[in-house]
Design a protein around this nucleic acid. Sequence first.
DNA 1: CTGTTAGCGCCTTCAT
DNA 2: ATGAAGGCGCTAACAG
Lengths: 337, 337
Amino acid sequence: MTTIYDVGRLAGVSRSTVSRVLNSKNEVDPKTAELVWDAVRKLNYHPNVSARALVRQKTDMIGVILAHVSDPYYEKIIKGIEAVVGERRMGVAFYNSYDNLETHRMIVFSALVGNRVDGLIVVGSNLNDRETLQEIIGQDLPMAFLERDLPKAGITSIICDNRDGAKQAVEYLLNLGHRRIGCLTGNLDYQTAIERLEGYRCTLQKYGLPVDEELILKSNFQYSGGYEKMKQLLSLSDRPTALFACNDMMAFGAISAIKEAGLSVPEDVSVVGYDDIIFTSMFYPPLTTIQQPLFEMGGLAAQGLIDRINQGEQYESIKRVLPVKLVIRKSCQAVQG
Amino acid sequence: MTTIYDVGRLAGVSRSTVSRVLNSKNEVDPKTAELVWDAVRKLNYHPNVSARALVRQKTDMIGVILAHVSDPYYEKIIKGIEAVVGERRMGVAFYNSYDNLETHRMIVFSALVGNRVDGLIVVGSNLNDRETLQEIIGQDLPMAFLERDLPKAGITSIICDNRDGAKQAVEYLLNLGHRRIGCLTGNLDYQTAIERLEGYRCTLQKYGLPVDEELILKSNFQYSGGYEKMKQLLSLSDRPTALFACNDMMAFGAISAIKEAGLSVPEDVSVVGYDDIIFTSMFYPPLTTIQQPLFEMGGLAAQGLIDRINQGEQYESIKRVLPVKLVIRKSCQAVQG
DNA sequence: CTGTTAGCGCCTTCAT
DNA sequence: ATGAAGGCGCTAACAG
């Protein structure tokens, strides 16, 4: 391992000078600096991150904890985070919680309390994590929340208007003449799932329609969940003519079940999804869905977190609720006759 | 920040004893140990990772560099890596290269030379990265390669039998009576893309069929690339009756183009993909494709890397070529008449 | 403008 | 079985 000391020796200067050059602090004679850079290149020197982090008490890294990095839903959020973080010359580390409370707790503590990262973005975590998070927040460590707001916490949270999204979806179906509209919810341990369901309910009520509990099935945001629950919905004597799936993956699963039953989308059942993940437009039929500003969300969370890190506890937390919009494709049509 | 010193003071012991308890080294009086653990819990102490890494000269983290974490293709590979790494009580950090050589270089150096991780798994990187990688390998730092083998490197590499995969796909189509089989290649800066194309060519030759260069279109492993290139293929006067797409995303794009042209899959064009990503079975029609043992690949790479880290340079590198298999779904049918 | 000095928090001999 | 002391590689005062 080559250290700052080796660089100094080769350049004929002290270690502190090397450090100054590397960090472009204070004034350094341009000639000296050039000597140092030459040595750095020649030795292919890269600072030991641990040593640097130890003395500076910061790692220039932020962490992002989410259920599973590979979930396509996170794609644009991740890109939004990375864009901002890269711009500020920091790095990102991703951690998978697998939606497991114990794992989540371990990660949060070892990453944040163990100083592995300077701050943490928690993406849409399980509401039962509240205790862990309150504990962390109590220590005034930099955090930001995405798709979730923690009451009383002086912390940035970026969420989308889930109730309004559900409202747009349901209103769209109502305008097409649908009256029996099924709803596949996400895992109700998640704020987004709860709010979307509320939006569905309120919208029906607003239009003076009955909320038939038989048409509301608690699912889990997964393809398989959408598939299974849709089969149940189709077996109803008076089956729905339309479906509001609280995310796109469940919509895909539901559509498979519909096709398997010998029915068609949108001829027999209209389907609206939620999220607008990248696959929606590749899917057949192209899915009508609610689009969230995912890239922007990621960016705002990262920005809030980094500001908090830089400004310390004087940072004024922000809470943003971003608007969503309906994207009409080809999975819905008006009720016939 | 609470340190080992605070813990020691609360427990009434020295810092070295705390350290011993934490790392369960040597013998420590069970009563003393209990005292220390009590203090740890009471203070919610978590070791400072930087300090620990600095003195131990290891981070217990491995890095994984790939084009983009959110690409669904990596999903199972990632899970395979995580399974092994978790089992060995280490952690993983993911880095996105975005298929950019400069980014790739920076990550490799700062992560590995900067001691951010103990070793690095490079997943299917651009062949033009060779120089950077050789440079790193020259420093005998622990690395493992996935979907790529670097000649002369005493380093673990795990690849799949891409030529055989292409052969299985093409033979399947030939057996269905197809003679004009198009090929959409991936980005030929990648070993997998090159080998799959070779497999396609060799198989046709093996059966004494002409290789019509007009039917081979260089694409990029992307949905959009598959879509565009398939449009070209369809505009040919004597268009192909079947397509071998070198990955599933291009197959999806191609199928969109086919549908858009008023044709059907598999009635008018049969399509075989490659990879068997999670979406293939959700797609309509369910895609016939080549399945790779992705989970196993990730696990083997992680295992090889960790062994190398633990055993040092005496580690005997392994090179594994894993078998692949054809998964028949519904995107192909026999030539009519 | 540059070198000297003193830690950052932890682990690991070496004593006891 | 436990404590004292030294140092991992780096940065940040403080001198000069």
